Simulated assay, not measured.
Amino acid sequence: MLKHLRPTLVLTVALLAITGIAYPLAMTGIAGAIFPAKAAGSLVERDGVVIGSALIGQNFTADGYFHGRLSATVAPDPADASKTVAAPYNAANSGGSNLGPTSQALLDRVKDDVAKLKSENPSAPVPLDLVTTSGSGLDPDISPEAALFQAPRIAKARGVAEDRIKELVAAQTEGRLLGVLGEPRVSVLALNLALDAQTGKVQTGKSQSGK
């Protein structure tokens, strides 16, 4: 019996060592050597301090900053572990909302958000990505249209010309990969960092991230 079990056990241990230990360590080492920034999480720094990741959005809410897509991620309620509370861009609990197109709660929320956004910029249609959540809840990018829609609010809050904000959006816009894959997009964190660098001041007062 042992004669038949030994090859099986040896093969199992060998495969475990190769696929469970050696291969992951080798891939981690190679990735760290070739793509150190990406392997470390695509971290973003300002003044030597890590303020976020290029892969994960942040919950900017101050009037003087660009806002990202809505996030439906949640976290355990500190007061009651059996419940959850809203925690936008919670990377430990990535996911979207389970509300569907027939949900009245969803329809009411979108209607209210559209009305609020229209009050900020009545002359432009509200971009879809400003009133819908992404599937992951962590999307760091918005469409150029969503960024430009926010230009009047940001220009007013920062006391700068609206054209200056639009020029910044154009400069930060990334095109389709290889000219055909994906859609044009703008990183909200990168855009807000460039905004601070250009205007020379950081907005305070309301909740914000990336600082």
Rank of each mutant, 00 (worst) to 15 (best):
P7W: 07
P7H: 06
L11G: 09
T12H: 08
V13F: 15
L16T: 15
T19W: 11
G20M: 10
I21C: 08
A22Q: 10
A22K: 08
P24E: 10
I30K: 01
A31Y: 11
I34F: 13
F35I: 07
A37H: 09
A37L: 08
A39Q: 12
S42Y: 00
L43Q: 12
V44H: 06
D47M: 04
D47I: 04
V50G: 01
L55D: 10
L55G: 07
I56T: 12
Q58K: 14
F60A: 04
T61L: 10
Y65M: 04
S71V: 03
S71G: 06
V74T: 12
D77W: 03
D77K: 02
D77V: 08
D77S: 07
A81L: 14
V85C: 05
V85Y: 00
N93Y: 00
N93A: 15
S94N: 07
G95R: 13
G96K: 11
L99R: 12
L106A: 13
D108S: 10
K111G: 08
K111Q: 11
D112V: 08
A115T: 13
K116C: 00
S119H: 03
N121Y: 10
S123N: 11
S123G: 01
V126T: 11
L128K: 13
G135F: 12
D139V: 05
D141H: 15
P144L: 01
E145K: 14
Q150D: 02
A155H: 00
K156G: 06
A157G: 04
G159L: 06
V160Y: 07
R164C: 00
I165F: 09
I165H: 08
A170W: 01
R176N: 09
L177M: 12
L178Q: 08
V180E: 03
V180A: 11
V180D: 04
E183F: 00
R185P: 03
R185F: 03
N192I: 03
L193Y: 05
A194P: 09
D196R: 13
A197R: 14
Q198V: 01
Q203W: 00
G205F: 05
G205Y: 03
S209A: 13
G210C: 01
G210V: 03
